[in-house]
């Protein structure tokens, strides 16, 4: 089978839902098979994957770290929806400055941008695969 360009959307919140774990396994497997990941877009409670301030128990997986490391290894484009992120307190430095907040929490390898990035992934990718409930 020839390589496919995939867009991935994650709408399920981390730990509460398995969506971001399943998407991680899916993206890893797709990359191992030689497919291209055009973008991973985080929406709804999925944006909560993108905070670096989570402290899960040490004997459990760290969903944010998994994604950050995978992004670094494969130069993945991890995009957090700005509107959904603002509601849920996920901020990068610029956004924290603009909103007058005293800190930012965006995790390494993630960037904050608009919903248009998700639509673009739907247009550009051969398949848009959604993980959520």
């Amino acid at each position: 089978m020839s390589a496919v360009k995939l867009g991935v959307v994650i709408t399920g919140g981390p730990y509460t839902r398995q969506a971001s774990d399943t998407a991680y396994q899916f993206v890893k497997a797709a990359l191992e098979k030689g497919h291209e990941i055009f973008r991973v877009f985080f929406y709804n409670d999925g944006v909560n994957v993108g905070t670096r301030l989570t402290v899960p128990p040490q004997d459990d997986r760290n969903i944010q770290k998994n994604w950050s490391e995978l992004a670094e290894r494969h130069k993945l484009d991890l995009v957090v929806c700005v509107a959904a992120a603002q509601r849920r307190g996920i901020l990068d430095k610029d956004e924290a400055g603009r909103q007058g907040k005293d800190g930012d929490n965006i995790a390494p390898g993630f960037r904050i941008s608009g919903l248009g990035q998700m639509i673009e992934a739907g247009i550009v990718a051969d398949r848009l695969v959604i993980f959520g409930d």
Binding site: Y43, L115, I119
Partner: peptide, 15 residues
Amino acid sequence: LESLEVVLIGAAFEQ
């Protein structure tokens, strides 16, 4: 609500 927000943004892409 967050579905409606996607629809509103997506409308600009002429799909």
